[in-house]
Design a protein around this nucleic acid. Structure first.
Lengths: 234, 234, 234, 234
DNA sequence: TATGAATGAGCTTTCATTCAT
DNA sequence: TATGAATGAAAGCTCATTCAT
């Protein structure tokens, strides 16, 4: 009715402290939402579905979230945090070792994280195509990793390890796109692949592109037997 | 309504011959649809918008198309055809010249085609996230070019031009992803880039990855002055 | 979803020409709306009620009106036009006759119009308390008649018929309020009254207030027998 | 829910004695409610807004009031009491003085009370349009003052001060409506006015209507310089 | 008394699609 | 072919009120 109404009212999703019961309910909603987003995508999931799955009344949803978008954002936050966590779980490599070992570790971490969260990654991709706010979230996340890569490339160029004709930003962008999109194609679109081969091939291309020697090609290096396995393309 | 829809009734969009007037109306609808899809995306374009822009009655739409999806498919067909056409417009390079010239030509063609159809490419990306049929269309289109690339790589391996440790299918997939996704990031997401630099850098990375020498790095080759221009990243 | 959607779409309630059927449906909706607004007020009438009473589907409402407010505005337009028409139906009085005859005619016309549209007047009063647009409509309507009265008073002052210590605008406001609110109290709130007495008393007070002689008090004037009838107050 | 609500359970708002703390909470709620009703009207004030402003939990509201309507009623009680109090604050006039002095005092008192409570008066007007109980409250309040006026008129008629052709009840109703509605128009609707002029003009019209001489027009009476000041009409 | 989570009926609005003309 | 009115299933969101603690 009026426009100037309810400025003071109980804004949902504000960071007020919740009781134990509140925390439980809220968590149930988020879990239910994630499961449904993964199964049906954002568009085909409605608030009614979420509350039904969480066994609460429809209105309860709005005690905790102002909109479907808001709960989705929350799920995405979790997703990105989880992705970073998984990527970091890869056993670290010696700082003074092969560059390619570092690159391979990053690639393997990325693919593993993608596998663990493939459905949600796909849904985020979906939502980013029509929701500016989430497009922005995804973009920031992308830019952050591109920047880190670009800096690494610049550093390596400073140490004479990489050809100066390579532009760090373009290269970071493109090689990042390669890894990211390959993951999408394999894992989300379902092109057949084998994890080990995928990591090896991606890393080989990545290293070659930058002119960095690949440790697996060095005969003295601990090896990579059995990687060239059969690959069926759908 | 809906369920017992006539199976034998006048199926719209059947390939029966159209009168001159029919052809005109249909064309107007497709043009209007494309313009609106580009401007507003698939979800935010209604059938009512399309018919209004085409200056026909709402119901007329269903004389020619069975659904919003169907007209979208038609626009996409046009899009893909146009994309291929533009990509092929690149002046051909000598069959016996540098491999990298062929690669560069393909990359330039792809980026140019992307620029010409960026909006629709983005919308196709959108629709593919929730419409299986269009996901399939896009997938087939991707697989087709991946296959061509894979064959080329295999051929070049046969001629000893490319390292045998590179798997043709994985490489075609990943390098294709690199080009495709870079185009998306630059052109659709709006990351700042310069076309010439983008083509050069993409091609350099592509060639390096495959171990193919880049013709622009050869001092005897007709050169590429001024490419390393200033690049601002957003 | 997007914000920039559907600028070209079929805006409802636009003044496009309607087919006969369209006119019929639209009229039915307005009639149903008016009946329900009168019976239940604005707040307790919902779009579903209106369409049910008009025997059309819920969605059909939005083919013709953008909102409940819009159809209400239309009903109010009709109401005000009708009110003016009824008020003007009073047989005119001689321009050179008693001033009080003119005043009485206006009062009788106003009360008659109020009786014919009492319920809607009450509802308009209701809506005006929370809807700025309709508050404005009602205000304009009030100011218009106040201005006309004020000018008449000023004119009569110029002809020496009315005390100059009376401020035309204040007087027009207050005497207008008297007639208007008395009508509301009698007709809407249901205080018991008799039309003839009400007109006579209102006019007498009005004339006295302005110092204008009342024609009914003149023994030579065609008279008003039986007006002082019994009056029961609730 | 709703239907089988306990009849025997702890009825809220019952007149049981409150602890000091209870009194405090209750008072806070009423204060908060009044402030919000005045600012946003009845419809745009939620129970949640009220409790938030009173710094108590949502549920606490129902410890003291059975419904939103009930707290509104309470605020209205306060309002009416306050209105009467302010109206009575006008310095009394001599019982044997001019009748018009008594009338002017009453009018001034009414307008002053209206000014002090304009917002709530407007909201009461709003609620009375859809809530029978509050319509009744307002009606009783109106009838009470109409009756007092009617009796006064009747008394004055008995003393030969007022024309017998004036019906006391109709006149009390109409002149009361005049004062009441003029106040609404000036103070709530915001038509421009000056308090002194408004009181003088209202009283003049009132007295004229009843045929009572206005003391300010008597040259021997203590006068009212500067009342006909500039008046801007919106 | 106080809390705040939970309830769920109820509302407006959208829009792809159908159908009588 | 063309028309445009009619359809009706959804969907998101609000909020007065209840209730377990």
């Amino acid at each position: 009715m009026g426009d100037n109404a309810s400025i003071t009212g109980p804004t949902p999703a504000m960071n007020r402290p919740l009781t134990a019961r509140g925390v439980r309910t809220r968590t149930n909603l988020v879990k239910a939402a994630r499961a449904l987003f993964e199964r049906n995508g954002f568009l085909d999931t409605n608030v009614g579905d979420i509350t039904a799955r969480a066994h609460v009344a429809h209105g309860t949803f709005y005690t905790y979230f102002a909109s479907k978008e808001e709960i989705f954002s929350e799920v995405v936050e979790m997703l990105l945090a989880d992705t970073r966590r998984i990527a970091d779980e890869e056993p670290p490599v010696a700082q003074d070792g092969w560059l390619s070992e570092r690159i391979e570790r990053a690639n393997r971490g990325y693919l593993n994280a993608y596998v663990a969260n493939a459905r949600m990654m796909a849904v985020l991709e979906q939502v980013a195509t029509f929701n500016p706010r989430l497009a922005q979230v995804r973009r920031m996340s992308r830019q952050y990793s591109v920047q880190r890569s670009a800096e690494a490339i610049r550093r390596w160029q400073g140490r004479g390890l990489i050809d100066l004709r390579i532009d760090p930003v373009y290269a970071a962008n493109s090689l990042g796109s390669m890894v990211d999109r390959s993951a999408y194609v394999w894992i989300v679109l379902g092109e057949s692949y084998q994890m080990d081969v995928a990591v090896e091939q991606l890393t080989r291309l990545y290293c070659n592109a930058l002119g960095v020697p690949y440790h697996r090609d060095d005969p003295t290096c601990a090896s990579t037997a059995g990687l060239r396995a059969e690959v069926v393309t759908t």
